[in-house]
C-alpha cells in the first residue's frame, strides 16, 4: 500500500495563526486544504515534511456584489462550478473549476489549493521507488533535469485549470502572512520556475479570490486531456474579453500546461483589440496565441501534438465567446 508518511497535524484557528506556525516550522511544514494534490504527492514522497498545517478555518462562501465576486479559498471546486452567479458572470471560471479532475475529487479540492497546486512532470510525479530507479531529478532528490539534461532549471508544468482563468479575468488574491494582509493579482502569484513556482512567501495563506464584474464581460475555458475526466490538463486556453457592441474592447488569453506558469498570450490580445470576432480573426489570433507555447516532453501525449493543439484550444475558446448571449456571427 502507498501510505502517507508520519506527520503532526496542526489546527490553527485563523490565517494569521497558520502563517505564524508556517514561519516557525519552515520547510518541514506545509499547508493543507482539501489535500487532493498534497496527499498523493506525500504518498509518493515528493515532499518531506513532518507537520501539516490544516487550513480548515478557511471560509466557504461566495459573495456576490454588483461590481465583484469574492470567493473564499475554502470553497470547493464543485461549489464554484455550480454557483449560479459565477456561472452567469464569470462562466469561464465556473467551467474551469468543473473541469478539474473528477466529481468526487472536486468535492474535496478547494479553489485556493487549485491556485497553489504543484507543477507537474512525468519524471517527478512518480513513486519514490520509480524515481530512484530512473534516477532522481533536481525538483526532488537529484541535481539534473531529465527532460532537458543541459538545462540549469526545472521545466515542470503549471497544471492548474483555474489559475489561467483567474488571470484572464484579472483576479486578485488576498494573502495573509506574518506581516499582515495584502492583495496580489493572480498574474503575479507565479514564477517561471518549475521548482519555486509560487511568488508568494511560504508563510502566506491565500484566503480569497476576487473577480471584478465588468459590463460586456465574457469568458470561456477549453481544456485538453487524454480522457474527458480525471486527467490534468495537457493544454488549455482561458479567454476573457470585454465587449463593446460587437467589438473587443479588451481581452486576455492565458494558456494552461504549456510552461511552468500560466502563460499570457499577449500578442494575440493586442491583435484582437478593436476587432470583431469573425472566423478569420479568431484563426489569426489563435495562431498568434500558440506561438509562445513550448511544451516539453514531460506531460501526457506527444509534445509536438500538444504544441499543435494549443492553436486549436484557443480557437475553440474564442469561438465559445462568440457563442455566448449577444455573440456575433462567425
Amino acid at each position: 500500500m502507498l501510505r502517507l508518511p508520519r506527520f503532526k497535524y496542526l489546527r490553527p484557528r485563523s490565517a494569521r495563526e497558520a502563517a505564524g506556525m508556517a514561519a516557525e516550522k519552515g520547510a518541514r511544514a506545509m499547508f493543507v486544504a482539501g489535500g487532493t494534490d498534497l496527499y498523493p504527492k506525500l504518498k509518493r514522497r515528493q515532499f518531506e515534511v513532518d507537520t501539516l498545517i490544516g487550513l480548515d478555518f478557511l471560509g466557504h462562501d461566495i459573495r456576490n456584489g454588483s461590481t465583484e465576486c469574492v470567493i473564499d479559498a475554502g470553497v470547493t471546486l464543485s461549489a464554484a462550478s455550480r454557483d449560479s452567479h459565477l456561472k452567469g458572470g464569470f462562466g469561464g471560471y465556473a467551467e474551469a473549476a468543473g473541469l478539474v479532475s473528477s466529481p468526487p475529487l472536486r468535492n474535496a479540492g478547494t479553489i485556493g489549493g487549485n491556485l497553489c497546486v504543484d507543477t507537474r512532470c512525468n519524471y517527478y510525479d512518480m513513486t519514490y521507488e520509480w524515481r530512484k530507479a530512473a534516477g532522481f531529478c533536481m525538483k526532488k532528490d537529484g541535481d539534473i533535469c531529465l527532460v532537458a539534461p543541459s538545462s540549469p532549471r526545472c521545466w515542470a508544468v503549471s497544471s492548474s485549470d483555474t489559475a489561467p482563468m483567474a488571470i484572464a479575468l484579472g483576479g486578485v488574491v488576498t494573502l495573509v502572512g506574518l506581516d499582515g494582509e495584502r492583495e496580489l493579482p493572480v498574474s503575479a502569484l507565479y514564477r517561471d520556475d518549475g521548482i519555486e513556482y509560487m511568488a508568494k512567501r511560504p508563510d502566506e495563506v491565500v484566503t480569497s479570490l476576487r473577480l471584478r464584474a465588468e459590463p460586456g464581460l465574457r469568458s470561456a475555458y477549453v481544456k485538453l486531456r487524454r480522457r474527458g475526466s480525471i486527467d490534468f490538463p495537457i493544454a488549455g486556453a482561458a479567454v476573457a474579453a470585454r465587449m463593446e457592441g460587437d467589438t473587443i474592447a479588451a481581452c486576455r488569453i492565458v494558456l494552461s500546461a504549456v510552461a511552468s506558469y500560466p502563460l499570457d498570450a499577449e500578442a494575440a490580445c493586442t491583435f484582437l483589440k478593436g476587432r470583431r470576432l469573425d472566423r478569420e480573426t479568431v484563426q489569426e489570433a489563435a495562431e498568434l496565441a500558440a506561438k509562445p507555447a513550448k511544451p516539453l516532453d514531460n506531460a501526457d501525449l506527444s509534445h509536438f501534438w500538444r504544441k499543435r493543439m494549443v492553436r486549436v484550444v484557443v480557437e475553440q475558446a474564442l469561438e465559445r465567446l462568440s457563442d455566448q448571449p449577444g455573440g456575433f456571427d462567425s
Binding site: Y9, G35, T36, Y39, P104, L105, N107, A108, I230
Partner: peptide
C-alpha cells in the same frame, strides 16, 4: 490510493469523496 480510480469512494454528508485522500 492516489485519487485516480474512485474505488475508495464513500459519502461524506451525502457527497462522494475519495477516502484514500481524506484524513
Amino acid at each position: 490510493e492516489l485519487g485516480e480510480c474512485g474505488t475508495c469512494t464513500v459519502l461524506i454528508d451525502g457527497k462522494p469523496h475519495l477516502s484514500c485522500l481524506v484524513l
